[in-house]
């Protein structure tokens, strides 16, 4: 009987699966109408500029979310990766080593976090709360009492352009997309999120998935750290501090279920990141002040989460 009903709506359901895409398209349309002729290559450029770092970290974070876990330390991890890359550049004057250092730091943080989670058998979320505070302190240590550390902006000027950043995003996205959809690990992580016990009884190793997911996120964090330095070569205590939250918001806006599972999709990260930047631009174009802007975004966020979680409060029908 349920089948008959679903059948009737399956076409509609297929369309609504892409509702976050519609949201993005709606935002693009409104932005276009609002801005009219003042949309230039510059406008498009800054949208990419502002979305790219969040999009990269969020893309990696989808892995962790897909098996129902939650990492709030990603912003701080990115800050640490960025700091280490600045220090590396100042010692070696090599962009390549700087990138390498950033990725190494990102991956190391991921490995440490995941191994601790697996060894201590702690919920990832709890662990990342502790990690957040450790990493924030580490940022302070790396600053060494100064208010900021920096590299000369000329050093990275050659990379400070939209095509390069877009290229990095696309490469990383493709890597994650590929692993998520075409490998055993990706499939297993989704299944793990959908039902951990059924996953275990199907031979899915929670530990293996956790470690691999954190390594993948680590690569993203490393790239994001590098791009953070390119975007603003001067880093301080609050660098990337809001990134952790932005990533979370982006993922939710992108249509990723917070509990992970079967409906997890990697595109949510990119759709969400661009949606937020566009939403911000649309609100600015309506002349909202920054305060009103924040409130409008927060309300929309709450609404999205509310709607997304209605599904958990299922109706109980007698059989």
């Amino acid at each position: 009987m349920v089948e008959r009903f679903t059948n009737k709506f399956s076409g509609l359901k297929r369309i609504t699966n892409y509702s976050s895409w519609f949201g993005l398209i709606a935002l693009i349309s409104i932005y276009y109408i609002q801005m009219g002729e003042s949309i230039t290559a510059y406008s498009m450029g800054i949208i990419i500029e502002q979305a790219v770092i969040v999009a990269i970290v969020a893309t990696g974070a989808i892995f962790i979310f897909s098996f129902g876990q939650f990492d709030i330390s990603l912003g701080a991890a990115t800050a640490v990766a960025a700091m280490v890359s600045v220090i590396t550049y100042n010692r070696t004057e090599s962009i390549f080593l700087m990138l390498l250092a950033s990725i190494l730091v990102g991956v190391s943080i991921g490995v440490i976090e995941s191994i601790l989670a697996v060894l201590l058998n702690l919920p990832v979320f709890v662990l990342t709360v502790a990690m957040l505070s450790i990493l924030s302190s580490l940022v302070r240590v790396l600053l060494g009492g100064q208010s900021s550390i920096s590299i000369p902006s000329d050093a990275v000027a050659a990379f400070d352009n939209v095509p390069f950043k877009l290229f990095i995003l696309i490469c990383y996205f493709l890597l994650c997309f590929f692993i998520f959809n075409y490998t055993k690990v990706g499939r297993e992580s989704k299944f793990l999120g959908a039902n951990p016990i059924a996953a275990k009884q199907s031979g899915v190793s929670n530990k293996k998935i956790t470690i691999i997911a954190f390594i993948l996120v680590g690569i993203g964090v490393g790239l994001a750290g590098f791009l953070t330095v390119i975007r603003a070569p001067m880093l301080g205590q609050t660098t990337a501090a809001s990134l952790g939250l932005d990533v979370l918001v982006a993922i939710v806006f992108g249509g990723m279920p917070l509990s992970g599972g079967a409906r997890s999709k990697i595109s949510a990260a990119v759709v969400g990141a661009f949606s937020i930047v566009l939403l911000n631009q649309v609100l600015l174009s309506f002349g909202f002040s920054s305060g009103q802007n924040q409130i409008a975004k927060a309300i929309l966020f709450l609404f999205v989460v509310f709607v997304a979680t209605i599904n958990y409060r299922k109706k109980i029908l007698p059989r």
């Binding site: 490998t183 299944f191 959908a194 031979g203 599972g261």
Partner: peptide, 29 residues
């Protein structure tokens, strides 16, 4: 609660233990 993931498709539930058989060159198409 244990044998199936209710909020996954029939396909996902059946293939989850068969990925090793399905994969070609380590990839799942």
């Amino acid at each position: 609660h244990e044998a199936l993931s209710l909020n996954s498709s029939i396909r996902e539930n059946i293939s989850i233990v068969g990925l090793d058989i399905i994969k070609k060159h380590n990839l799942i198409f």
